[in-house]
Amino acid sequence: MSDDRGELRRLIADVVDGTPIADRSSDELWHTLRGLGLTTVGVDEASGGSGGDYDDLATVVRTLGIHASGLPVAEAALAAWALSGDRAVDDRSRIAFAMDGGYEADLSVLRVPGVPWLRNESGVVVYDSSGSASYVELDAPGVTVHPEVNLADEPRDVLEIRGAMGVPLESAPPLAAARARHALLRAAGIAGAAEGTYRLTREYVMQREQFGKPLSRIPAVAASLASMRVALVQLDAAVERALDALRGDRHAGQAGSAAVAAAAVIASETAAICARTAHQLHGAMGVTQEYPLHHYTKRLWSWPGEVGSEEHSAEYLGGLALEHGEATVWNALTS
């Protein structure tokens, strides 16, 4: 899985396109993706992964977004990456990824909301908010999974651990690196879903005729479509920039984390613009269960806040800028 990302995109498109859009988060497709090794991209083959790098993983996640699949490839691959220093992983591992767990007041209960697809897995890599990472078997005593879903009906379960915290992962990457990688993969997924939304909308306004001509010939419609494109180009640039920054800053120090925060802020804006504009341009056609648009827009409404809020990213970035001043901001922009 080297640099030929075009091939990677085609591989995923071929697999996913054969599945009806409503089933692109099914167990069956998940097994297929696992079988292809896509859930351990970015982990060395020597450690049991599929090889490839983090950029390959971002391509996988973005491409799944284009095809409206919400399967937790990002989380599976991050769990494998976090585990791989301590133990071997393989494509059959069924491990979820839970970030930023908070303890209840007496420290006896750790609670992590919004864990993707936890109910389907057998174990979970958990980072608590102090940065300790551990591996927890879900059938261990004191571990409970409360099923919840997001707006797109994707599992976002609550993990609750009473008592012991499982096996500490001594070699797990630092919390900041895990957070940055998770947030950037989410931004890449949003970029994909926004592109899928755009493709569907473009096709619709070019085919649908009103007033005796395709909708796209109405200047206000064309301008709205263009504003979606503008938002997409902006988000892709932000994601590329953050990928470059993380490549040069593996442990996600300030430079990497700041670039990821910028991408998260832009992702949130792009998601909102694309969902709103796509629905407007589709008119009533876009609001039915049958028409595929909602498979995209529900994800664009759900995903942005799930891995750190936009507000938090903006405050982090603004705080750095105010603390360090113009020269530091400028160097970060132009380096």
């Binding site: 180009v233 902006q234 640039a237 932000a238 590329e240 920039r241 670039a259 925060a261 910028a262 991408a263 802020v265 832009i266 507000e311 990213s313 903006a314 405050e315 982090y316 970035l317 603004g318 705080g319 800028a321 105010l322 001043g325 113009e326 901001v329 970060a332 922009l333 132009t334």
Partner: peptide, 29 residues
């Protein structure tokens, strides 16, 4: 503005920095 903004402006400054950084990347592209 970066010299004068206070902590209450952090999020607003952050949003501007995010856009600025992305624009610069676009110019580079």
């Amino acid at each position: 503005v970066l010299e004068h903004a206070g902590p209450e402006h952090r999020a607003a400054v952050g949003r501007l920095v995010a856009r600025l950084a992305t624009l610069r990347r676009l110019a580079w592209n």
